[in-house]
Deep mutational scan, measured.
Amino acid sequence: ATNIVGKVKWYNSTKNFGFIEQDNGGKDVFVHKSAVDAAGLHSLEEGQDVIFDLEEKQGKAYAVNLRIK
């Protein structure tokens, strides 16, 4: 899925991951530091509006192509 809109539920910059809540009511999506770095960001803030693509690997969904809304 592409261009999914959501809000950062939480992001832990020490542990380098967090979760994004989808605006469409879907399951929360894992986001890793690598996606944050690829977006040219240092971190994510709770409540921040983002747009992302959804990829699945080994049955787990995660956010890629992250951008600030």
Rank of each mutant, 00 (worst) to 15 (best):
K15L: 10
S34I: 15
S13H: 07
F17G: 03
L41Y: 06
L44A: 02
D49I: 12
T14H: 14
S34L: 15
H32F: 05
Y11M: 03
V8G: 01
Q58C: 05
Y62I: 06
V29P: 01
L41R: 11
K15S: 12
G25C: 05
N16S: 11
I68H: 10
G40L: 06
G25T: 11
N12I: 07
F19S: 02
Y62G: 13
V8F: 03
H42G: 10
S13A: 10
E45N: 13
Q22V: 07
Y11A: 01
D28S: 06
K7Y: 06
L66Y: 00
D23V: 11
V31R: 00
A38P: 03
S34W: 10
E56H: 14
F17P: 00
N24G: 13
Y11I: 03
A38E: 11
K69C: 05
A61I: 14
E55Y: 14
S13W: 12
N12G: 04
D37E: 07
V64F: 12
A63W: 00
L66F: 02
F52W: 02
Y11L: 03
D37P: 02
K60E: 07
E45D: 12
K7N: 05
K33W: 10
W10G: 02
D37K: 09
L41C: 04
N12S: 09
A38D: 08
A1C: 04
N12V: 10
V5F: 12
K69L: 08
Q22A: 15
F19G: 01
W10A: 03
L54A: 06
A63R: 00
K60M: 13
N65G: 06
S13I: 10
H32E: 03
A39K: 05
Q58N: 09
L54G: 02
L54C: 04
F17K: 02
A1P: 14
K33E: 04
N12M: 09
F30E: 02
I4T: 06
G6P: 00
G18Q: 01
V31M: 06
G47I: 03
H42M: 12
Y62D: 02
G26C: 05
S43E: 11
F30N: 01
W10R: 05
V36W: 03
S13M: 10
Y11K: 01
A63T: 03
L66H: 00
V5K: 10
V5T: 07
F19D: 00
D23W: 08
K7C: 03
D49C: 05
I20P: 00
D28G: 04
S34R: 12
I68W: 14
Q48I: 10
N16P: 02
E45L: 13
D49H: 11
N16W: 13
H32W: 04
I68A: 14
F52S: 01
K69T: 05
L66P: 02
F19E: 02
D28M: 14
T14R: 13
Q22Y: 14
N16D: 05
G25N: 10
A35T: 11
V64S: 09
N24K: 13
L66T: 01
V5S: 07
K69P: 03
W10N: 03
K15M: 12
F30C: 03
F30S: 02
V5R: 14
E46Q: 14
K33D: 02
